[in-house]
Every structure is written in structure tokens, then in C-alpha cells.
Write a protein that binds this DNA or RNA. Structure first.
Length: 235
DNA sequence: TCATTAAATTGTT
DNA sequence: AACAATTTAATGA
């Protein structure tokens, strides 16, 4: 219970390399950008750390600068349902930040990660002043809606190969996660946690996907060669 | 910069 | 769940 407290305590400013990882900064005017950069903070999250929890009031709009997070929710039975992973370049919580409500999901670090935060007040200021920012948020909301619907479908799928394929495809979404290029840094163990399968089965699925030319398995990562095939399952 | 060692990740049973 | 093989990261000369 104290882990996320430490996360909030050990914050610092962002260096130029980290600022370069934030996709929406380039959409702002110089003045807007200055204000945003002045407010941005960054913190380290250790594996298992909570970045935000269900029911907590929204104080920040978060983004992943480096690492990998997991977005999940606990249903009535006490079971944890994973919605998606959040790779570098991904920002989340805009829906709840907009309405200044409480978070509706948990965000947990799967591995050592760098998480940036923009205060809700600055978030709203940008909404009120920046057209570029509004475009970004609109796009973001739209894409995420599509992703949640896809996540529902994935959850109901029985074929593990297809599940892994779809989950990977979601992580390679160029709109939501522009920080992810050709290769996604993710271990098979992390992917297993995300999809809800054993590491062995994920390994098997990756081999299958690779044999169909949809991906290339690399040490500590996956390279996507045919995103369309991953999405549709047409190998 | 290179060689050695430890740690992480993968592939297989 | 456990194992060996492989890759990367860290260390120090």
C-alpha cells in the first residue's frame, strides 16, 4: 500500500531525451509547450508498483516514457481482468481526467518503467487553449474505444495463438503507442502476464506466428512484419 | 576496448 | 515447474 506513495514522492523533472518521447508535445504552440513542460514530472516505477488504482481521485494524466505497464480492472468476483498493456508513448486516464472522476482501472508496472505525469489542472488548461492538444485527445479517445472493444473480443477467444496475435496487434497500435516502432521490447513472460497464458504457451504461439511470417521473435522483444495479419488472424 | 562473469531470457521437456 | 542453452549487461583490467 505504500509502494505507490513512494512513486509519487520520488519525482523529478524530465530531461530532453525523455521530453522527446512525449508525442503530444510537438502539437503544442511554444507557449503551451512551455507551460506543459514546466508542469511535467517523471517517476520510476518498479515491477508491481501501482501507478494508479481504481477509485482513486485523478490528479495526473499519465504517460509511459519507458518500460511497460498493465491496465486492468477487478470485477465483482474479485478476479482481475487485464484490458491491455501500455508500451512507451502511451498516455492514459484522459477519460477520467476530463470528468475529474476517480480512476476506473488499475495501472501496474510489469517491469521497471519511467512514467510521466501532467497535473489535471494543466491538462484542462491545455484543453481550453490548444487545438493541437484537443486533436490528440479526440484521436486518443476514439482509438481507445476501439481498443477496448477489441479487448473484449480477445477475452472471449479460445485459441491461444489468436489471443496472442490480437494482443500483440493492440500493442503495436501506431496512434495510441507511437513510441513503439517495428520492434516492441517485451519478454515472453511479460506477454504471458498480459494475455493471461503460461509463458510456454506464449512461446509456442510466438513460434507459430513467426512461422506464418507475421512476426519475428527476438531476444527480449518482438518485431512485427505483418500487422494486418496479426489483427485479422489471417496468417 | 576487450575478456570475464553474472543476470536475464529463451526454448524445451 | 524445472532445465540447459543462449543473449545481454556489468565489471574491471
Amino acid at each position: 500500500m505504500t509502494k505507490d506513495a513512494t512513486l509519487l514522492q520520488r519525482r523529478r523533472r524530465l530531461n530532453p531525451e525523455e521530453l522527446a518521447e512525449i508525442p503530444w508535445l510537438q502539437l503544442l504552440s511554444p507557449e503551451e509547450r512551455e507551460r506543459a513542460e514546466a508542469d511535467l514530472q517523471i517517476a520510476n516505477a518498479e515491477p508491481g508498483d501501482y501507478v494508479c488504482r481504481t477509485g482513486r481521485p485523478v490528479t495526473y494524466w499519465f504517460g509511459v516514457v519507458d518500460g511497460l505497464l498493465k491496465m486492468s480492472s477487478d470485477n465483482a468476483d474479485g478476479q482481475t481482468v487485464t484490458f491491455t498493456g501500455v508500451p512507451p508513448g502511451g498516455w492514459f486516464g484522459e477519460g477520467t481526467a476530463l470528468k475529474r472522476e476517480a480512476y476506473r482501472y488499475n495501472i501496474q508496472a510489469l517491469r521497471k518503467s519511467l512514467v510521466a505525469g501532467l497535473h489535471v489542472d494543466t491538462f484542462h488548461w491545455l484543453l481550453d487553449h490548444s487545438i493541437g492538444f484537443n486533436r490528440f485527445i479526440t484521436n486518443q479517445l476514439n482509438e481507445r474505444l476501439g481498443q477496448f472493444i477489441a479487448a473484449l473480443e480477445i477475452d472471449r477467444m479460445t485459441n491461444p495463438d489468436i489471443r496472442v496475435a490480437r494482443s500483440l496487434a493492440a500493442l503495436f497500435n501506431p496512434v495510441l503507442y507511437p513510441g513503439v516502432g517495428e520492434v516492441l521490447r517485451i519478454t515472453q513472460q511479460e506477454l504471458a502476464y498480459l494475455v493471461g497464458l503460461s509463458r510456454q504457451r506464449v512461446n509456442e504461439a510466438l513460434t507459430t506466428l513467426a512461422s506464418h511470417g507475421a512476426i519475428q521473435v527476438e531476444y527480449g522483444g518482438v518485431r512485427v512484419t505483418n500487422l494486418q495479419a496479426l489483427r485479422t488472424g489471417q496468417f
